[in-house]
Design a protein around this nucleic acid. Sequence first.
DNA 1: CTGTTAGCGCATTCAC
DNA 2: GTGAATGCGCTAACAG
Lengths: 331, 331
Amino acid sequence: MGKVTLFDVAERAGVSYGTVSRALNGRWDVNAETAARVRRVADEMGYQPSHAAVALARQRTDLIGVVFPAVTAGFYAELLSAISDEALRMGKHILTVVAASDDDAREQLLSFATGRRVDSLVVMNLGLDDVFIESIARRGLPLVQLDRPTTLKGVSSLVIDNAAGMEQLVDHLVAVRRHRHVVVVGGPHGTYDAEERLDACRNALLERGIALSDEDVLPGDFTERAGAAAVASWLKAGRAMPDAWMALNDATALGVLQALKEQGIRVPEDTAVTGFDDIYTARFVGLTTVEVPLGEIGAAAVRFAVGERVQGHMRFAPRLVVRETCGRSSA
Amino acid sequence: MGKVTLFDVAERAGVSYGTVSRALNGRWDVNAETAARVRRVADEMGYQPSHAAVALARQRTDLIGVVFPAVTAGFYAELLSAISDEALRMGKHILTVVAASDDDAREQLLSFATGRRVDSLVVMNLGLDDVFIESIARRGLPLVQLDRPTTLKGVSSLVIDNAAGMEQLVDHLVAVRRHRHVVVVGGPHGTYDAEERLDACRNALLERGIALSDEDVLPGDFTERAGAAAVASWLKAGRAMPDAWMALNDATALGVLQALKEQGIRVPEDTAVTGFDDIYTARFVGLTTVEVPLGEIGAAAVRFAVGERVQGHMRFAPRLVVRETCGRSSA
DNA sequence: CTGTTAGCGCATTCAC
DNA sequence: GTGAATGCGCTAACAG
């Protein structure tokens, strides 16, 4: 119950509390014997430094702010787990904010920056523009961005190698059977991942001799609903079922699959479906997709967040996960 | 860039910084005019109080520690979202720890308690015994437990009304078609939810004239693997396919469904399957289950965590979600 | 109502 | 090596 302070330990150990501070922080200029004794006493008394006091004195909170949007909370579970893990390993903690809206996110980030609430920030998919990002980075907080590459000063970025992922998917598609006509369901306009995936997809297909016409690219927003809507609109337009549906993320693919199923269209017999991300649900619907190494990304994010090297960039390659929605290679 | 302090504001506003503190904290004993001016100046200067200093002076961190196990991280996404939301609304923040193991969790909790890292704690499914829980609650931190009821002093508990959930499930099962033989796949031994659900299930079935023999209760641990294993062992034992499989949580049900599918056993034609929780994946496999109001629970958790009323108990009723795994009522 | 004065618990110069 | 003295930025109790 009694909160043990540095002072208490000092008294009990028969030294001044300055010495205790040094001993406990493992500094070189302390008599080894004294240090050992102090350490023992502190241990016996169950001493734990007050984070608030340390933070105030040292101007450092040991807190990493992690901000992500509510809509896709499930997707970030593994990432959060990895971040928390690595943070603990480094003696830091995670202050999580699930932002209900992009505006909320901005407000929180701003408050974090000026209020010195955290030491560094990890953000993702919040629709933040460079001007804003920079304005907060300039406040001195190292910032790690997980949704797109950046060259801003003081901000690091960890991104997915979307092209590599798409190529694996297309390779698999053509390897497994002949595909002449594929349609893709896109993601939110203006977001890096959505656009890069679309481009990569288009290129990869073209290399295999499959052209993507404008009508073959359906609008989407990375949600299941958009996937289902895409199928519905396609059917309503009376167009022939394509050989494959390529969704730019798994959530969309799930929507596509569900809509297809409701229409009695069999997968993979009548058409194929691919996703991107390999979320938890994917395996239960047999979705063929590419797995994004969230664990590695999370760990790297923390390292960049706490690292002295305030700036860095990494690209993570996804890995193909073959399940049933494209059929199995007969090769 | 320049960190604005109370002192700066005071100087600029021409008052002492004690007054600024009072004005900004909206205390009654300040001249309305002065307060307004101070507030305006603070605003202009972009003043933000230093959390560390406030925490130290006020002995309060405005932080709620949320600790949950990594294994089921996905399940907590919505809960975390709700908690974060309500916390923000109350001017608090969430310090999230995804504990890799129960031992990690204990260590963190202990450190939180003695190090005054957070003001209160929300914990769930960490395999913590009462002795431990009490030892940390006694340290003065309000504790909200989300996995089982408790009568410990200083700790609140929010639990699911498992009996209500099971009854709805069983009701649905018998309403939709005749069921004579049902088998259930259990959860981790010794956990409240697992045991209460099993009891409730047994009772609910008995009331409808369906008895559960010992062989009809398969061991499990709330994972997909356990669900699949249960089916496998059942089949290996050469026993006849039951009319229904009741899994005590959704993850288990997913495993059951998958194993069944691999064996070519159709659902719901050949047998029915039920779950519990209504996780995100459930809808994509058409799982009939009960939905746990995670949003409400999360919000309530925060309220208990920050509330002056340090102790409280609530029970949340799940809601039946009918999909396909039991067939549709022909009524 | 407002200015002054102690702490809050610790890190970190300085002297000794 | 170790003790004493400052300061981190703010709250709160105290005088005026």
